[in-house]
Simulated scan of single mutants.
Amino acid sequence: MTTHSLPTISEQESATQELFRTLLDCMSRPGKIAKLAPSNGVLEIDLTPYVVSVALTLLDQEVTFQIVHDKGSSSSTLQVYTMASLAPLNQCDFVFMHGTDSVDVCGLKRGVLAYPDESATVVCSVNQLSDSKLYQSGTTKLTLSGPGIKDQCQLFLDGIDEQLLSLWQRANQEYPLGIDWIFVDEMGNVCCIPRSTQFAWEVM
């Protein structure tokens, strides 16, 4: 369990606004890697301080969320600080998980044709992400294409399960339906891959 110290309201609002702009920019430019500032709130929570920053930015009283394999009181703590509601995985707006968790992401909300934006966003923790080759055994190389990408770009991930990649690809095969992803690594690097992005992968 990690303790994060709580900033003042004005500091939190400023940090939240800056982080939200960063996420929007990354979502419009899939594959771009940006740097997050860690949260310094007093939250007893089993998430990295960088993922906590994302949670405090995205969650409010109008959305629902779930933390996969929550081992303690992390979910209830986030409820108190964000006023967001817990919901089952197949109904929630935001899913917080690790890339090695066993989750059938095909069962998450993928929107409907009339409202494709009513889909889930997965905030996925990984060990490391980079736009250049990583040398850890089992690193995954994603080759991305689609809106916001000139030709193709590559993203390297350490700490994501190959089965999860297969399920993710299946969940997004009927665009505009699908799931948006936000990847955050242990050093605070962040990258967004919206449901409009096509990808292929290779385990290095």
Rank of each mutant, 00 (worst) to 15 (best):
146 G>I: 15
54 V>R: 00
132 S>W: 02
143 T>W: 00
69 H>C: 06
32 K>T: 08
45 I>C: 03
182 I>H: 05
159 G>H: 06
61 Q>A: 14
196 S>R: 12
119 S>K: 11
114 A>D: 15
30 P>R: 02
137 S>G: 08
33 I>S: 01
30 P>C: 00
39 S>G: 02
201 W>F: 15
169 Q>D: 08
113 L>S: 11
118 E>W: 15
59 L>I: 07
42 V>Y: 10
158 D>Y: 12
153 C>M: 08
102 S>Y: 03
51 V>C: 08
57 T>H: 04
140 T>K: 01
5 S>Q: 13
67 I>L: 15
186 E>A: 12
82 T>I: 06
175 Y>W: 11
31 G>H: 08
21 R>W: 09
153 C>S: 03
98 H>T: 14
183 F>G: 04
60 D>G: 03
12 Q>P: 00
152 Q>K: 03
17 Q>F: 07
203 V>D: 00
65 F>T: 04
69 H>S: 14
91 Q>S: 13
75 S>F: 12
57 T>V: 03
56 L>N: 05
69 H>G: 12
183 F>A: 06
160 I>K: 08
157 L>W: 01
81 Y>M: 10
114 A>H: 14
139 T>E: 07
26 C>N: 13
100 T>Y: 13
62 E>A: 11
82 T>S: 01
195 R>N: 04
13 E>K: 12
164 L>Y: 11
68 V>H: 14
10 S>G: 02
187 M>C: 07
96 F>R: 07
175 Y>Q: 08
12 Q>A: 09
78 L>M: 15
129 L>K: 00
67 I>F: 12
134 L>W: 08
115 Y>H: 14
26 C>Y: 09
35 K>N: 09
190 V>P: 04
193 I>P: 05
22 T>I: 12
177 L>C: 10
12 Q>E: 15
55 A>W: 00
153 C>G: 07
174 E>D: 09
191 C>E: 04
173 Q>K: 03
100 T>H: 12
9 I>R: 03
50 Y>P: 02
85 S>D: 15
160 I>M: 12
7 P>T: 13
75 S>C: 12
71 K>G: 09
126 V>N: 02
28 S>N: 12
91 Q>P: 00
2 T>V: 15
199 F>A: 02
32 K>A: 07
12 Q>M: 14
38 P>W: 08
30 P>K: 02
46 D>V: 01
18 E>V: 07
162 E>Y: 05
147 P>D: 06
28 S>Q: 12
110 R>Q: 13
186 E>T: 11
116 P>N: 06
67 I>W: 09
202 E>M: 05
188 G>D: 09
116 P>D: 03
104 D>T: 13
185 D>G: 02
39 S>N: 10
29 R>V: 05
48 T>H: 07
77 T>I: 15
18 E>P: 05
10 S>Y: 13
184 V>C: 06
53 S>K: 05
7 P>D: 11
25 D>T: 13
129 L>H: 05
84 A>R: 09
188 G>L: 11
96 F>K: 08
137 S>R: 03
68 V>L: 14
95 V>W: 10
193 I>Y: 10
116 P>A: 11
55 A>H: 01
150 K>F: 00
28 S>G: 04
102 S>Q: 14
80 V>I: 15
101 D>P: 06
181 W>I: 03
17 Q>N: 03
170 R>T: 14
188 G>P: 04
93 D>W: 10
191 C>W: 08
160 I>Y: 09
88 P>R: 11
72 G>F: 14
